[in-house]
Design a protein around this nucleic acid. Sequence first.
RNA 1: GCCGACGUAGCUCAAUUGGCAGAGCAGUCGCCUUGUAAGCGACAGGUUAUGGGUUCAAUUCCCAUCGUCGGCUCCA
Length: 598
Amino acid sequence: MAEQERYEDSELYRVRHSAAHVMAQAVMDIFPEAKYTIGPPVENGFYYDFDLPRTLTPEDMKLIQKKMRKTLSGKHEFLKKVLSADEAREIFKDQPYKLELIAGLEDGGFDEYGNKLDEKPEISIYEHSGFVDLCRGPHVESTAQINAKAVKLMSIAGAYWRGDENNTQLQRIYGTAWNTKEELDAYLWQLEEAKKRDHRKLGKELDIYAFDEEVGPGLPLWLPNGAVIIEELEQLAKQMEREAGYKQVRSPHLTKESLFIRSGHLPYYAESMYPPMEMEGTNYYIKPMNCPMHHKIFAARPHSYRDLPIRLAEYGTCYRYEKSGELFGLMRVRSMQMNDAHIYCSEAQFEEEFMAVIDLYMKYFEIFNIDKYVMRFSTHAKEGLGKKYIDNEALWLKTEEMVRRAMKNGGVNFVEVEDEAAFYGPKIDVQVWSAIGKEFTLATNQVDFAVPPKFDLKFTNAQGEDEIPLCIHRAPLSTHERMIGFLIEHYAGAMPVWISPVQAMIIPITDDHLDYAYEVKKKLEKAGVRVEVADDSARMNAKIRKAQKKKIPYMLIVGDAEMEAGSVALRMRDGEDKGAIPVDDFAALAKKAIADRS
RNA sequence: GCCGACGUAGCUCAAUUGGCAGAGCAGUCGCCUUGUAAGCGACAGGUUAUGGGUUCAAUUCCCAUCGUCGGCUCCA
C-alpha cells in the first residue's frame, strides 16, 4: 500500500487554511473594530474565531460569502514575512488576542491553542490583498488556487478562547472548502446521507426509544423494540462473561455519601453527580458508577490468593448529571446501564487479565463487525498529579508501563494520549465516531491502583500475608444507551437478525390466508423466532413496503400456493426474492442465523 | 453550563404585510381480496411547547421558562 500523504502536507490543507484568511478578511471588512483570533484548517474545512461587537446573523453569512467570492475572483498572492516579536507587536497593536499569541511564541512556550511547543518558533505573518494575519502557514501561492465555487460557509457557533470555558466566548464561523465544485457537492451529499443514519432519526422511525419532556432530558424511555435489543445484548454479555469466569453481582442504586468520599468520587466527581438527598440526617447519592459497590462486595468476604482473580459483573444502572448542552440522543444521556465489571487480581496476574479483557473486546467487535475504531491508551500528565490524578507518580509510571507492555506483547495497535487517564489509573479507551462525525468512547478498560487501598481491599498471599489487589474496570459493551445508539448507526438501522426486534413479518396476500399465517407464526415462535403477522387491512404491496421501512430481516409472503405446500415465500430486506421454501426449512434457517448471531 | 438557531396533528411539513390553523403519511371505520416498496372512500386528529405581554385581532411581534438542534466546554 502506498504511503498516504499527511493531511497537513496536502494542497487541500493549504487551500482551507488560506480560505480561512480570506474569510477573516471579509469579516474584518464588515466589522473593522472586531478582534480576530485564530483560524485553522480542520477535517473537511476550516473555521475562524472572532470577538465581534454583535452576534452574527444569516444575512451576515451571505455578505461574508459574497465578499470572499470577490476576493477569490482575483489573483492575490500570499506573502510570508518573518519578523521580530516587536515588529509583530507593532502590526497587531490593536489586536489583543494576536498580542497574546505573540507573547506565547516569544516565550517559545505555546502555540495558538495554548499547547506547549518543543522548539522556539519563528514569528511570521502572511499577507494577501492587504490583509495581514499572524500565521506560520503554509498557504497556497495565491487566491487563484482557491476555487470559489468549492467554498461554502456552513455554520456559526460559540467557542471559548483557547478552548477554556473561563475565557471570553468568541464567535466561530465554520466553512468547508474543496478543490472542485463536484467535491463540495459530494461532501454535502455525504452529510445528507449521514443524517439518514443518525440514531436519533432511526431510533424514532424504528420505535426503539423516546424522550419525553416531562420525564426529563437525557432520560431515555425504551420502547418494546429497544427493550428487545437490550435483552439480547445482556444475554450475549452473560454468556461471554460466564465463559470468561465472571460472577454476576447486584448492587443498589443509592448509597451513603461516605462511600463516595472514600472512593474519591466526592468532591472531585460531584459536578457529574445528582445532588444528595437527605434522610435522617445522612446524605445519600444516586450512583454515577458501580465501582465502590463492587469493591464492597469484594470486601464482604475474606479472599485467598487461590481465589484470584475475582471478576464481578453487573449491568449496573448509573446516573450522571451531564450538562444540558452535552446531551446527545442516546450517545450522551443522564441515565445509563453499564456493561460493568471489576476484576481483582494480583500484580503477577495483571497482564493476563488485562489482555483477556482486550480479547473479549475483539470477540465483540467480530460479532458486530466493528472495524472502524481506535484503541487509545490514556495516560496521566505530570501537571495533573494531586489535582485530577492520584498523587503517586511512581505508581502511575509503573502501571502505565504494565499496560503498554501488555498491549505490545498482545500485538494490539494503539495510540498513546497523555492526560486522558481516569483519576485512579491509566486506561484503554475504544474510540468510535457517530454518523455525523462526533467522536465517542465506546468501551473502556481501566487499571485502578489507587482505590483498592482506600477500601482496604486485600487478599492473603501464599506467605500468609495481606496483599492489596489491583483492580481492572472494564465495559466492553459500553452502556446500553451508547452501544445501541452506536449499533443503530453502524447498521443504518438494519440490525442483524439476532438483535432485530421483529425478525420475521408474515404477509398474507388476502384475508383468506390469515389462518395459515397465524399457524406459521405459531410454528416460528416455537422455534424461537420473533415474528408478527401483518393482519391490517392494507394490501400486500403496502405491507411489504411497511416491513421494509421497519428494516425487518425476513418477510414471509403467504398465498394460495404456500398454503397448499406448507411453505412461505421468503423476501429478504435487501429486496431479494428467495422464492417459496417449506416452513420448517425457514424455521431452521432463521434459528441458525439467530444462534450464530449473524 | 455558555453562544446561536429552532419548537404548528403520532410523523414529515404548509399557512401572504399580524386577519377563520391546512396537507400527505400514520390511526379508526367502510369498500376492494389483491403475488414482492404505497388500492379507493369517509371519519377523527390542535389551548400552534408552556406562561406572560403588545394589539380590535398573535402560529406570526416582545419577554420569561421548558425542550430540541449546531458548536464550545465536558464525557461511558
